[in-house]
Simulated assay, not measured.
Amino acid sequence: MRVTDTSDLWWKSAVIYCLDIETFHDSDGDGIGDLGGLAERIDYLAELGITCLWLMPFYPSPDRDDGYDLTDFYGVDPRLGTLGQLVEVVRTAHDRGIKVIADLVVNHTSDQHPWFRASRRSTSNRYRDHYVWRDTEPPDTSKLVVFPDREDSIWELDERTGEWYLHNFYKHQPDLNLANPEVVDEVLRTVGFWLELGFDGFRVDGIPFLEQSSKNSGDPALAVDPHELMRTIRAFLNRRSGSAMMLGEVKRSTSRTRSSGPSSAASRPTSCRCSSTSSACRPPTSPSHARTPARSSRPSRSALPSTTPVSGRRSCATTTS
């Protein structure tokens, strides 16, 4: 690729800085980082030389998994600020020449999400098929769990209906049924919503777990090819914003990774949530971070050592070149 080509493929030479709003900077003294604090530090980030800001989940959440347990795909956690303040952050970043991308959580929701709360009311509820259920006792799936110190199966019995629901991560994070066109439509609607608010792309969480097969879902009829799903999202992204970037969390070597589109990037195996062809995790160096403990008492999914003065989690400066 010629250097001149990077002018219309900005992600090819982007320097990406990942941060958690809650642990970045507190503007009102309540001990929790917030959008007001992030807005105050946009100039600091620009001085670092970054060209893209990747925001970890800022959505409403019970916060049992660093915000990856969502209860609303279209909102902002009120502890962090308002939707209006988020738009101000994006606008200010753009003014300083910084693109902004958001974490897109497609695999699951919180068990407190209105869809799941409705789906477990009865087997005939209209939201039942938004999740993956089975009416027969599942086999031993202990070898498939992501967190063997916390879970011993990827299925959990729901006492009310007497059926089991799939959860590749924690039992409080039921997996969405991505074989359901209504669920995929809602995912695309979510992508469109955040694009309209000015975001420049997404980092898709947990792509390997988007695959549904008879092995993990218990039903061949619910099969989902994650590559096809990513191509569907990529095609929608191209229609709405041809310059938008899509990163993917892919825990396999790049030599084995198939592309989901012309501007996607895959990650090398790493314990960090960085998701590109080259990443370097660095402790945040801002002089003023929120004075908050770790988001939860359990180990973070990022499994990084406690080296930061705030929460034991690091921000990531990443390049996709």
Rank of each mutant, 00 (worst) to 15 (best):
D135L: 04
Y59L: 08
H113C: 05
E137L: 07
G75E: 08
H113P: 12
A102I: 03
L157H: 01
P62W: 06
S300Y: 13
F24Q: 03
W164C: 09
L210K: 04
G81C: 06
T161N: 11
S275G: 13
P220M: 04
S263N: 15
T320K: 14
Y170T: 00
I50L: 15
A266C: 10
D140N: 08
A280W: 05
V132G: 11
S288F: 03
V3Y: 08
V105N: 01
G242M: 03
I16E: 04
S302N: 12
T51Q: 14
P78R: 07
P148D: 07
S7V: 14
T320I: 07
R121I: 10
T320W: 10
T82E: 09
R79Y: 05
R160I: 04
I32T: 15
P287N: 14
W194R: 06
A14H: 05
I16D: 05
S153A: 07
G31S: 07
V145W: 02
L70I: 10
R128Y: 06
D140L: 01
T92Q: 11
S300F: 06
V224N: 00
I16H: 00
T318P: 08
C52S: 11
V191I: 15
W115S: 11
D111A: 08
M246W: 07
D111E: 14
H108G: 09
A244V: 05
E40G: 00
L304R: 14
R121L: 12
W54T: 07
P181A: 05
C18H: 14
R239G: 04
Q112D: 09
A102H: 08
K99I: 00
G31D: 09
R234Q: 11
P114R: 03
N180M: 04
Y74D: 13
C274H: 09
S214I: 04
Y127T: 04
R291V: 11
P208F: 08
R41D: 15
V250M: 15
D95E: 15
R240T: 07
C281L: 13
L229F: 01
Y17W: 13
S61H: 00
D225Q: 06
W54D: 13
A290W: 12
D43W: 00
H289S: 06
P78E: 05
K12P: 01
P174A: 12
S321E: 13
V145H: 01
R117W: 00
Y165R: 15
D129N: 11
S119P: 03
F193H: 15
L48I: 10
L197G: 05
D158S: 04
D205I: 00
T51H: 12
T190N: 15
H167W: 06
H108E: 12
